[in-house]
């Protein structure tokens, strides 16, 4: 039986989620990891984020052979090599440009970028805002560890005001970006934030972003206790996990829209940081590869028959 508007009378069966699969089975399905430890420092949030991404692949039900990732330079940049997906390990900040090309050439692929905060928001800022504006169906994952980790802990566009880094030993003088606010402003259809200290929530945010048709952005608060933490009174991984837990708000509805974004302050005298977690923005709009396909069809229709064959 079908309803007058052609909709089937029954909804499609809800996908059964298999969230309890042990890690070793997931590794077998999705990852390609070394026998020994990862290239990150001990306790680094990148290993935790990588684990959540693997579970998100499973939750979203992707075929890993149809996944391609792209990224640039930074501590995070080895991550793409630890999955069974294809990966472009390209130049610094160009993840969104590679992903745009990949998705246009092979729209059937699930395309993600794995990018650091410095990579995405400093040198790669231009690529990021224009990919968001086009609403191309890629998922951008930003690992925000408040600094340039790989080069020794210099400040990034995300470094909290007043906090100490290699290049701001007296305190960061510039206000930071709220990456999620920037993504929304640039036109992203799906924008979410989570932290590595909330692994189930983080997994869901990434899975939802992968499933979203259109440009999706997930900001992952990911600690670098070794460089940023040590310089700001949180030298252990657990110090930073507690910092995320203590300053996070998980119930979006309790926070008025204008208070969901934050310019963090973390100086010796003043500490004012808040992480509002969850899906901060959801807006359906025309998707770029589909619009581009329509344009291509129109152009082809105009070609003389001789050229078409």
């Amino acid at each position: 039986m079908s309803l007058p508007n052609g909709m089937p009378a029954t909804r499609p069966a809800k996908k059964k989620l298999d969230l309890q699969r042990p890690l070793d089975e997931l590794v077998e399905m999705y990852a390609d990891i070394p026998d020994k430890s990862f290239r990150y420092c001990p306790g680094c949030g990148l290993g935790m984020a990588q684990s959540a991404i693997m579970r998100a692949f499973h939750r979203a039900g992707v075929d890993i052979t149809k996944v391609a990732t792209a990224g640039g330079s930074g501590c995070y940049s080895v991550m793409g090599h630890y999955f069974k997906s294809s990966h472009i390990h390209g130049s610094h900040g160009r993840g969104c440009a590679y992903a745009t090309g990949l998705k246009l050439a092979r729209p059937e692929l699930t395309v993600l970028t794995l990018q650091g905060d410095g990579d995405l928001l400093a040198i790669g800022g231009n690529h990021f805002i224009h990919a968001a504006r086009r609403n191309i169906d890629i998922t951008v994952i930003c690992f925000n560890n408040y600094n340039f980790g790989d080069t020794g802990g210099q400040f990034a566009p995300t470094t909290p005001l007043g906090s100490k880094t290699d290049t701001s030993s007296l305190g960061m003088p510039e206000p930071a970006f709220d990456a999620c606010k920037l993504a929304i402003g640039a036109g992203a259809g799906f924008v979410a934030r989570s932290t590595v200290a909330h692994p189930a929530h983080l997994t869901k945010m990434i899975a939802d972003a992968i499933e979203w048709k259109g440009f999706a952005f997930v900001e992952v608060m990911q600690h670098c206790h070794v460089l940023w933490g040590r310089r700001n009174g949180m030298p252990e991984a657990m110090d930073m996990m507690r910092f995320y837990k203590d300053n996070s708000v998980l119930h979006l509805s309790t926070v008025p829209e204008e208070e969901r974004f934050d310019i963090p302050v973390y100086s010796e005298d003043e500490k004012d940081v808040k992480f509002v977690l969850g899906v901060l923005h959801r807006e359906k709009k025309p998707e770029y590869t589909e619009e581009y396909a329509k344009l291509r069809a129109k152009a082809m229709a105009k070609l003389p028959a001789k050229v078409k064959s």
Binding site: L23, V27, C44, S51, V196
Partner: peptide, 17 residues
Amino acid sequence: CRLCEWLCPDWAIVVRP
């Protein structure tokens, strides 16, 4: 609860029912 498995940054822990 699997927190240890999910949070181990080096994927050293497997929890199985």
